[in-house]
Design a binder for these strands. Sequence first.
DNA 1: GACCAGATTGTCT
DNA 2: GACAATCTGGTCA
Length: 190
Amino acid sequence: MILNKSWYKKDTVVIARELLGKYLVHETPEGTTIGKIVETEAYLSTQDLASHSARGETKRNKAMFQEPGHSYIYFIYGNYYCFNVTTAEKGIGEAVLIRALEPVEGLALMKKRRNDMNIYNLCSGPAKLVIANGITKDLDGHDLTEHPLFIEDTENQKFEIIQTTRIGITKSAELPLRFYIKDSPFISRK
DNA sequence: GACCAGATTGTCT
DNA sequence: GACAATCTGGTCA
């Protein structure tokens, strides 16, 4: 079942935790890929200088200020895209970065896109999972309750959640806003 | 118009 | 473990 709009109406940090274990599904002409979310990071509006929204809305981060439950995809380091789920009310500017997935379906397609045979290296990083799932900038601002890109609920699963500091940032690096499933071999970094 | 930092990855040591 | 590659948006260093 696709997570509906009302599911996204809660605190960004709560969503970051609850997205763990959910399925990210992308349907393309080449086939469908599904990955279980095993690692996320929350980016807040205020008191979070690492967030793109810290200095207000611009053309680039526009999607971040939409209603919750949309995608925010941005280009970084000249080569890569990162995929976020928007949260918080329209105009606030918060989001959850999806950092790693456990491949569930469409493994052959993911391998083809990633040019790599090792499943532990297919989606173990924010830019890697974007490539493996064929996500493009065209999907920036996409409503994640609609096809072809959406997040699906899963059966109740039991796992322990680890909360720690975020990765790859210099500002507000001390904030404990990163979450991942304990002992998952598919996360980006320990 | 120019300059610089950046929510990363792959490659080399 | 260290660092280069690569380019766009935001700021004016």
